[in-house]
Amino acid sequence: MTHAIELRDLHKHFGKNEVLKGIDMTVDPGQVVCVIGPSGSGKSTLLRCVNLLETPTRGKVFVEGVEVTDPDVDIDAVRRRIGMVFQQFNLFPHMTVLENVMIAQRRVLKRSKKEAEAVARENLEKVGVGAKCDALPGQLSGGQQQRVAIARALAMNPDLMLFDEPTSALDPELVGDVLTVMRKLAEEGMTMMVVTHEMGFARQVADRVVFMDGGVIVEDGPSSQVIGDPQHERTRTFLHRVLHPED
């Protein structure tokens, strides 16, 4: 079986700073994999290497069997199949919600205006912001903006989705709405790689949890094991700090 994502011996340097020190991991189709770890552990960089927002210094990235680190590959075509959701939402502030979700369909997939609008409305409805089509992003709450961003990615009919700390910039009371949408996606069988600090979500929704620290994968296994019964001391220390911050 072809992996949805396969990373082989991935290294990334920023100048002298080595952020990723040889990562090997896979995500299979339909799987939800959560990547957890302390800040600065390289988890966001890892995620951004999958669709080449960061170019790995060494190693290979395969998406659905295609080596995307091959210089000859059409990276735009690969990215079309990979939805990405950012911590800061990154909606286009000069376009309405509807236009945000339509623009790439129109310009990249060359869908007709009518089709793009239908797809956009359907996806906005799905994430619960169907009533906000004509609003500008700046008029929405963070939770609504992030759900629009998810709809924007979904409108491209991606094969897999990357989430880069999607709830970290949200007020606590808005986190739930976004997680609910993500959970629904997972239940529909979407392949997802999620960098997150939401341990509850990781434990309940993820098939696998990967714990990173210092640019390497420390522990990789079923969520119940990595979070419920971690095998490594570093994982235990991290989880203890996250789950009992006041100890």
Partner: peptide
């Protein structure tokens, strides 16, 4: 982030 969002949509 604006460019990153656009590029990750395949533009």
């Amino acid at each position: 982030g604006q460019i990153e969002a656009a590029r990750s949509l395949g533009m």
